[in-house]
Nucleic acid binder design. Structure first.
Lengths: 199, 199
DNA sequence: TTATTTTAACTAATCATATTAGTTTTCGCA
DNA sequence: TGCGAAAACTAATATGATTAGTTAAAATAA
């Protein structure tokens, strides 16, 4: 940023992250990014294969950062407390890096091994947090999916400006997480009841 | 589709819907759509203002269809049953019209009145369903947000192929909804406890 | 230091899309 | 039949991504 910043992949990713966080993922273009880096568009091809590869790398970075946030939040906590902490961390990441998070959910190549592994590590982290509930293995996985759905859903809707009514959004979030936690407790008490697909 | 189909806005929207449901929202282009309609790209401009207007109209159609599905599902039901029914309808809509649903969450103009109104009608429908729980007005709205988050989150993750583990996705969904319902019951019992933002 | 190699920039050109301008065709109907 | 509107068309322009081929600059080896 000062005089002649040395451009390498990490600088490119950093600028791209700033760009998408400020202007949205859809505004990311080779041209605009090159402009921010003060080079010509084709020069970017010396560092990466094109826009798709860039988006893929952003996706990976986004998932890794999400994991990082959640992991830090989970340190030294367990049970309900841990769920609240990782949920809050998730929300915080999306608010601080809306574009990067968006990138982490709209990637060109879902089969990318590095991406898959990063995603898996988030799942494992949540499974670890749920470990304390002594749920059946299968139920635990369903619960991970549930919590992910809640977190992704809430943050996405918030980002798209979907909560229209003038009502404290943070409170909505806390209540949602608490409702889910209460639900887990209820399910814990009678797991069998929930293992049958009654429909 | 037969020999000379008369092209008007509704035919365009229908073909566009097929296109996005089959190939994804990002594949929607003036060129491809024109090809499917067997006309030249510029001819589409006789019917609409451009790609953005088309996407906006798809978004509105998507929200309206979602409302329709949910409303039909809610007829004659109440309480937990009604929540399960509208949730199932939501999931069904997204599975039958993934591209249209996607369009309904990524629109060019969030201030469009028709779009806002359609979205509002979905919120009102869910509020009506929650009415039976006799929640405080404010809590009810938080719960609407919660359920929307769950439904949007779950369906989005499913669509992006995000549920990696080999475990019945439908069961995950039922458990999630049931967990949420149990949570509502728990919260209902002691609403005050959840009205304080303890963090 | 100087020569060589590699890296990373550049210009110019191509391709895909959206869009606009201006023209022609088609079709319902007076 | 023939007019006027609707809706198609061709041609042209603009923006972006990308490729090809070239040059400059930096790192490294002699």
């Amino acid at each position: 940023m000062s005089r002649r910043m040395k451009i390498d992949l990490s600088v490119i990713l950093q600028k791209a992250t700033e760009l998408v966080d400020e202007q949205g993922l859809d505004q990311l273009s080779i041209g605009l990014l090159a402009e921010k880096l003060e080079i010509r568009p084709p020069s970017l091809y010396n560092h990466l294969d094109g826009l798709n590869e860039l988006k893929q790398k952003l996706a990976i970075q986004g998932v890794k950062k999400l994991h990082e946030y959640m992991q830090q939040a989970a340190v030294g906590r367990s049970g309900d407390d841990a769920i609240r902490a990782i949920s809050k961390a998730y929300l915080q990441l999306v608010r601080e890096h809306p574009g990067l998070y968006d990138a982490s959910t709209r990637f060109p190549d879902a089969n990318d091994q590095e991406l898959k592994q990063a995603q898996e590590s988030v799942v494992q982290l949540v499974l670890q947090v749920l470990d304390g509930y002594k749920l059946q293995e299968e139920i635990a996985i369903h619960m991970v999916r549930g919590l992910r759905s809640i977190l992704h859903g809430f943050t996405s809707i918030e980002q798209m400006g979907g909560f229209g009514m003038p009502l404290d959004i943070n409170k909505s979030f806390l209540i949602l997480i608490n409702t889910f936690i209460e639900g887990i407790h209820a399910v814990t008490i009678n797991e069998e009841k929930y293992m049958q697909t009654n429909d």
